[in-house]
Amino acid sequence: MSNRHNVFISYHHKNDEGYKTEFERLFSGVYDILETKAVSDGDIDPYIKTETIRQKIRDDFIRSASVTVVLIGSETWKRKHVDWEISSSIRDTQLNSRTGLIGIILPTYPRTDTSKYSKGTIPPRLQDNIDCGFAKIYNWSNDSYEVQKWIHEAFKRRKQVNPNNSREMFRQNRSTSSWC
């Protein structure tokens, strides 16, 4: 299987930077799987208008991506930028077609049974898209062949299933213990 994809990585910068780096280290060079892009702290001026930030995310960072991977740690679902990145990824625009979408649950995600997760503690827009069949969610894996398969399946699904982007976008980061 030699399907190379440009992947945009959405994640909680403060908590999960190490896993983003590990994901890139494990998968960028192996089997020619992917090229990655992510918004890093300091890439976008936080004092510009919200709509301008959202447009910059789409046009400057997600533009060349064919699949968006959401790395899900303990507080990822609370982050407004993760919500905006997912929303921007699954939107068809004049300049960009929508990306495929998957979530990967990190080992730091709080749970006692790795076969289950709490819908209320993963990004709500990602859950909406799991529910409608546009996205899938997986546990962290070091197996590059398996991850490549997930990414390629998401790439194919992006044209076969319509995403759900109807949820109102986060205005600010969340602080509750669950969104549902």
Rank of each mutant, 00 (worst) to 15 (best):
S89G: 08
Y19S: 00
S40P: 03
K149F: 12
K149H: 14
D59M: 10
N6V: 06
M169C: 13
I151C: 05
W150Y: 13
V39E: 00
R167A: 12
S141D: 10
Y47A: 14
I53D: 06
I104A: 01
D32T: 05
I53E: 05
R58L: 12
R167Q: 13
K149Y: 13
Q148D: 09
V69F: 04
H152F: 14
T68H: 05
C132D: 06
L26C: 04
N164Q: 10
F155M: 03
R111P: 03
G100F: 00
S115E: 11
V67G: 04
I57V: 07
E17P: 01
Q127R: 07
P107W: 07
Q148C: 06
G42E: 07
N165W: 11
T121I: 11
M169P: 14
R167H: 11
F134D: 03
L26K: 03
R171D: 14
W77I: 01
Y11G: 04
I137H: 05
F23N: 00
A154D: 02
D113N: 09
K49A: 15
Y117A: 00
G42P: 07
K20A: 10
S10Y: 08
Y145P: 08
R98E: 03
N129C: 08
F134H: 06
V69K: 00
M1V: 04
F61E: 04
N162H: 09
I9Q: 07
S66P: 06
T36M: 04
S115W: 03
R98V: 00
I57G: 01
T52F: 08
G100M: 01
T76S: 01
Y109F: 02
H5N: 09
S141P: 08
N139E: 12
S89W: 05
I102W: 02
L106N: 00
F27D: 02
N165R: 10
S87A: 15
R4K: 13
I151G: 02
R174F: 09
V161T: 09
I53T: 04
F170M: 14
L106C: 02
F170S: 06
I86L: 10
T21I: 14
S144T: 12
P46K: 10
A65H: 07
D92Q: 04
E51D: 15
S166W: 11
S28Q: 14
C180I: 14
H81V: 12
I9F: 07
K136V: 06
V39G: 01
Y31M: 13
D41K: 12
H152W: 14
Q94R: 12
L95E: 15
W77Y: 10
W140R: 04
I90F: 05
P110G: 02
E85I: 07
L34W: 00
Y145I: 14
D131M: 03
N96M: 09
K136S: 11
R58A: 10
T93R: 05
K20H: 11
E153H: 05
S89K: 01
D43M: 08
S178P: 02
W84P: 05
R54D: 09
T68L: 11
W150L: 00
W140M: 07
I105V: 10
L95W: 08
R63Y: 15
S2A: 12
N165V: 09
